Simulated scan of single mutants.
Amino acid sequence: MKLAIMQPYLFPYLGYFQLIRAVDAFVVYDDVNYIKGGWINRNFILGPRGKQLITLQLQGASPNKLINTILIGGRNTKLLRTIKQTYCKAPYFTEVYPVIEKILNHREINLSRFLVYQLLTICDYLNIQPNWYISSSLKKNSVLRGEDKVLAICAELGATHYINLPGGQSLYKKDAFASRQIQLSFIEPRVYAYRQFGDEFISGLSMVDVMMFNDKTQCRALLQEYELV
């Protein structure tokens, strides 16, 4: 069974959804510390001068708090308006904007549950359907940290193949997984340019950008543009 474990991010980039597509089961890692300046509550969209940062406002967010204990800091009206103004002339705005609107109008104020709802909603649009788990609901040893905690989750769910994004190469060692009869791989997204508003392709943006400029068939093709190493 192929498994991935990732913190929930706001409108993650294409590689995050490639990872979800590549596995049989996906664990939302919600009982780890919030990372200030990371991607849990912010991401990039296409702005008039290139990458434009968007941020989900939070209440009292701190690296000393777990993701699932943090609350959203208010309505998302401004964020929704920014996305609408940015992409209103994109070719698939009519299909995609209601998905984004549904997410940002969701009344959940717990950050973790809100982001899970967001991921499920986008995956439903993209027709990605792994088995979903929430880390805080699993019966693991919560004293464990880092690689040991990931290995414990793999053992609980019966994973035979653990797949992570490229950033995990400095965190996880193949020998440690092999000793538990688990294959360890890292997903390497291929850089694939698609038509945006201008002539120059701006990479590394949120999945929102991918969806606004590609129909569902094109999105499914892009979701397969990776290799495992």
Score class of each variant (00 low, 15 high):
Val116Ala: 07
Lys51Cys: 05
Leu56Ile: 11
Asn64Cys: 04
Asn41Leu: 05
Tyr34Cys: 00
Glu108Trp: 01
Val96His: 10
Ile70Met: 07
Asp31His: 05
Ile72Gln: 06
Gln57Leu: 00
Asn68Gly: 02
Leu58Ser: 05
Leu53Met: 15
Leu71Arg: 01
Pro48Glu: 13
Lys102Asn: 15
Ile103Glu: 10
Asp31Val: 02
Thr86Leu: 08
Leu66Asn: 03
Ile54Glu: 11
Glu95Lys: 00
Leu56Asn: 01
Ile100Gln: 03
Asp30Trp: 05
Leu111Pro: 05
Lys78Ser: 10
Gln59Tyr: 06
Arg75His: 12
Asn110Gln: 02
Lys78Leu: 14
Phe44Leu: 06
Leu66Pro: 04
Glu101Gly: 00
Leu58Thr: 10
Gly38Thr: 09
Val32Gln: 02
Ile83Thr: 09
Gly37Asp: 13
Asn76Glu: 15
Thr94Trp: 07
Val116Asp: 03
Ile72His: 08
Asn33Trp: 03
Thr77Ala: 06
Lys78Met: 01
Leu80Arg: 06
Ile70Trp: 07
Gly50His: 09
Glu95His: 06
Tyr92Ile: 03
Glu108Asn: 03
Thr82Gln: 10
Glu95Thr: 00
Gln52Lys: 12
His106Gly: 09
Thr77Arg: 07
Val116Arg: 01
Leu46Gln: 12
Ile100His: 01
Pro48Gln: 11
Lys51Leu: 11
Lys65Pro: 12
Thr77Val: 04
Asn110Lys: 03
Ile72Asp: 00
Gly38Glu: 14
Arg42Ala: 04
Ala61Met: 08
Cys88Leu: 12
Glu95Gln: 08
Glu95Ile: 07
Arg49Ser: 13
Lys36Phe: 14
Thr55Pro: 01
Gln57Tyr: 02
Thr82Ser: 03
Arg81Cys: 02
Lys78Ala: 11
Gln118Asp: 13
Asn64Glu: 14
Arg113Tyr: 09
Leu80Asp: 08
Val99Met: 05
Gly47Asn: 07
Val96Arg: 00
His106Pro: 08
Leu66Thr: 07
Tyr117Arg: 00
Val96Gly: 08
Leu119Phe: 07
Gly47Lys: 01
Leu46Met: 12
Glu101Gln: 10
Ile70Gly: 00
Arg107His: 14
Gly47Thr: 13
Thr77Glu: 13
Leu79Met: 14
Tyr92Glu: 15
Lys102Ser: 13
Ile103Lys: 05
Lys84Glu: 14
Leu53Gln: 11
Asn68Ala: 05
Gly74Asp: 04
Tyr117Asp: 07
Phe44Lys: 03
Ala90Ile: 12
Gln52Thr: 12
Arg75Phe: 14
Tyr87Ser: 09
Asn43Tyr: 03
Gly60Val: 06
Asn41Trp: 12
Cys88Lys: 00
Asn76Phe: 00
Ile40Val: 15
Gln59Asn: 03
Thr82Val: 13
Leu80Val: 11
His106Arg: 00
Ile54Gln: 04
Asp30Pro: 06
Tyr92Ser: 04
Ile35Pro: 10
Ile40Asp: 07
Gln118Arg: 06
Gly38Asp: 15
Thr86Asn: 02
Val99Cys: 13
Gln57Glu: 13
Asn43Met: 04
Lys84Cys: 09
Arg42Tyr: 06
Ile40Tyr: 09
Pro91Asp: 10
Lys36Gln: 15
Leu79Tyr: 09
Ala90Thr: 12
Phe44Trp: 14
Leu53Val: 15
Leu115Phe: 05
Glu101Pro: 05
Leu71Lys: 05
Ile83Trp: 05
Val32Ile: 14
Lys51Gln: 14
Leu104Glu: 10
Leu58Arg: 03
Leu119Met: 09
Pro48Met: 04
Cys88Val: 11
